[in-house]
Design a protein around this nucleic acid. Structure first.
Lengths: 254, 254
DNA sequence: CTTTACATTGACGTTGCGTTAAGGTGTATA
DNA sequence: TATACACCTTAACGCAACGTCAATGTAAAG
C-alpha cells in the first residue's frame, strides 16, 4: 500500500512537516516522487518510520538514528528486541516517578517526612551501564564509536556534567585501587577509599544504594570472567582485591 | 538546608545551566544571593523544582509551568494529584508501546501479519479529553485560557494538524447533530451521519474503538447532568437524541 | 601563596521542528 | 468547464530549552 505525506503522517501520529524534515535530512526518504512531485511512501518506509519512532521515543537524536537505520548492517528484528528492553527500563523509571509522586502526596498530607534527595527519585535516569565490557564492545564495532556514545548519552538523558562526573569517579576508583593493591591490604586506608569512591560511582547507576547490593556486585566482578578480565586488565588480582575491600567497607566480613 | 547551584543540580539530575536558565526566565528563583553573588536555594525551591520537573516530564512548556507555579492560587497538593493521574496515563501509553513492539517482534518472526496502522499503536497519544465540561472549566478560570490550551497541547503531544482535525470533526458533529435533531428521526440519514462523525471524533481519543464503548459513552451523556448540559446548551434534548442515534448506529437497539 | 574546583555573566550555537508565504495539484460540486 | 476547498511542493524565518565556550571572581585544600 502507498501513502502520501498526509496519510502517513496521520497514521503515524506525526506532522507532515516532520516527514518532510526527515526526507530532507536523509532519515526517511519516500519510495518515489510521483509526476506531480508528491512524496509517495510504501511498506518499507512504514517499517522504517516505526523504527525511527521507537528510537525517538527512547530519546535518540535524529542524526544517530539516521546512522543506525541506514547502516547496511542494520538488523530490524534485533533492533526491535533492543527497543523492547529499553522500553521496559523506561517503564521501570516511570514507576519510580509514580512512587515518588505518591510518596510526595503523603508528605503533603503530613503523614511523614521526606528527604530532599528523595524528592527527585525517578528524575535521574540510570547512567551508562557498568557492563560495557559484556556487550558494549560488539555494538561499538558494529555501529561506530561516535554513534553509540551519542546514543547512550541521549537514551540515558545524561548531561555532559554528569558524564564528566562519572568519568572522573571511574578514573579515581581505578587509580586508587591500583595504589591500594600495592599495599596489599584490603582493609587499609587506600583500599577503603577506593571502596568509597566505588560506592559514589555506583550512586550514579543506582537510585538507591545498599551495602548488600554493593557487596553483591563486587562479588560479581570475581564470578563473571569477563568482568574479572575488565578489572584485571592492568593488574591480575584486582577484581578480587576490590571485592575484598568492598566486603570490608560494607561490613560483610568480620 | 541550603544548596548552591551544583549541589541542587546534582541532587535533582539537571545541569547547572538549567538552573541558571530557570532563574533567568523567572521559573525558579533562588532563595537569596550570597555576598559572593552565588545563588542559594532552600527548601521552598526544592519543592518548587520538584513540581517543575513533574510538569516537564509531562511535556508542559516552561512558560506554562511558570505561569502555573507562580500563580498565587497554585495548590501544590492538588498539582501532585494531577501529576499522579497523568503519570498513570503515561504509563498506559507506554504499555501500549511495549505491546506494539512485542507484536512487531512476532511479526518479524513470521508468526502473523500486522496492518500498517497497528504499527503505530502507542505513538499517537490520546488527545484532549471529552469531558472538559466536567472539570476543564474550573481549571481555565483558575489559570487562564491560554495556559491551559498550551498545557493540554503539550501534555498530549498534539500537533496543530491533529488539533485542527479534532476541532473540525467536533464542529461537524455539532452541526450535523443540530440538523438531524430538526428531522426528529434518530434513525435518519442525518442522524446516522452525526453518529458516524462522532465515532471518527472518538477515534482521536481512543486507541481502539468498539461499538459497546461508543454506545456506553453516549449513554453517559444522558446520565451525567453536566455532560447533558454541555450538549443541550443550544437545543434541549440533544444529548438524548445523540444517544438514540448512536444506539441505532451501533446496533444497540433494534 | 598556589592549585584546583566551581561560582558568575554574557553570548553564540544546536536540534527538531512550527509557521508562513507563494504557487501547483487533486477532487468534488455547480 | 469553472470554482472551491483540501493538500502538495519549496523556501525560509522563528522558537524552546538548553549546551557550550569565554572571561573573570570565589572557595577550599595543600
Amino acid at each position: 500500500m502507498e501513502y502520501v505525506v498526509r496519510k502517513l503522517a496521520q497514521m503515524a501520529g506525526v506532522s507532515s512537516r516532520t516527514l518532510r524534515y526527515y526526507d530532507e535530512i536523509g532519515l526517511l526518504k519516500p519510495a518515489r516522487i510521483n509526476t506531480s512531485g508528491y512524496r509517495i511512501y510504501g511498506e518499507t518506509e512504514v517499517d522504517r518510520l516505526q523504527q525511527i519512532l521507537f528510537y525517538r521515543e527512547l530519546g535518540v537524536s535524529l542524526d544517530s538514528i539516521r546512522d543506525i537505520v541506514t547502516s547496511p548492517s542494520f538488523d530490524g528484528a534485533q533492533a526491535l528486541r533492543e527497543h523492547h528492553e529499553k522500553l521496559l527500563e523506561k517503564r521501570e523509571q516511570l514507576d519510580r516517578l509514580i512512587s515518588n509522586v505518591e510518596r510526595t502526596i503523603e508528605v503533603s498530607e503530613g503523614r511523614f517526612q521526606m528527604m530532599d534527595k528523595e524528592k527527585f527519585e525517578g528524575f535521574k535516569q540510570k547512567l551508562v551501564d557498568d557492563n560495557e565490557a559484556k556487550y558494549g564492545k560488539e555494538v561499538r564495532e558494529k555501529y561506530g564509536e561516535e554513534t553509540v556514545n551519542k546514543s547512550n548519552q541521549k537514551v540515558r538523558g545524561m548531561s555532559q556534567e554528569q558524564h564528566d562526573e562519572v568519568t572522573k569517579l571511574a578514573t579515581a576508583v581505578t587509580e586508587t585501587l591500583q595504589a591500594a593493591f600495592e599495599t596489599g591490604d584490603p582493609a587499609g586506608e587506600l583500599a577503603q577509599k577506593a571502596a568509597d569512591l566505588h560506592r559514589q560511582w555506583l550512586c550514579y547507576y543506582w537510585d538507591s544504594y545498599s551495602k548488600e547490593a554493593h557487596a553483591g556486585l563486587s562479588q560479581m566482578y570475581v564470578d563473571d570472567p569477563r568482568l574479572t578480565a575488565h578489572y584485571d586488565e592492568k593488574q591480575p588480582g584486582t577484581a578480587a582485591f576490590l571485592r575484598d575491600a568492598v566486603h570490608i567497607y560494607t561490613g560483610s566480613v568480620k
